[in-house]
Amino acid sequence: MTSSACPCCSGLSFETCCGPILAGAPAATAEALMRSRYTAFVRHDLDHVERTHAPEIREDFNRAEAERVADECDWQRLDVLRATEEGDEGIVEFLIQFRRDGQDMRHHERASFRRIDGQWLYSAGEVNPKGEPRRVVKVGRNEPCPCGSGKKFKACCGR
């Protein structure tokens, strides 16, 4: 069996990356599911895209349009910019580069995922997400220094 590079740009082979997920195995992480949905578009496997929608958005899926998008786009690369998980909730921010009608296009999205019965599902997406508000955390004088030195803040960077 030949092993080919996975379309999701993970650097792994398709057989060890998105292949099993497209074949029906549960994705281990929200990021893995997101990658497999991209690979599904590349491979025109829209069944996988459809079955990995959370119930509340399943009926909103315009399958006919998605098939057309898969046909008309030349998928060039996927970059996962950030992926976080907390329990059964996951957020994956990604950038897709593709060509359509001879033009270079980018799709930047922060997608939300939810795990139901062990299956990660896509539940929402924000296109061209705005940056999250910067959270300023005040470091107490007697707390360990955030630089990782092991000293108290007041005896280290806070001096």
Partner: peptide
């Protein structure tokens, strides 16, 4: 033309499914 051609595909798929 672009719209008609793309929508023709969409309508064909929708009609089949």
């Amino acid at each position: 033309h672009k719209n008609y051609a793309g929508w023709a595909k969409e309508m064909e798929r929708l009609a089949q499914r």
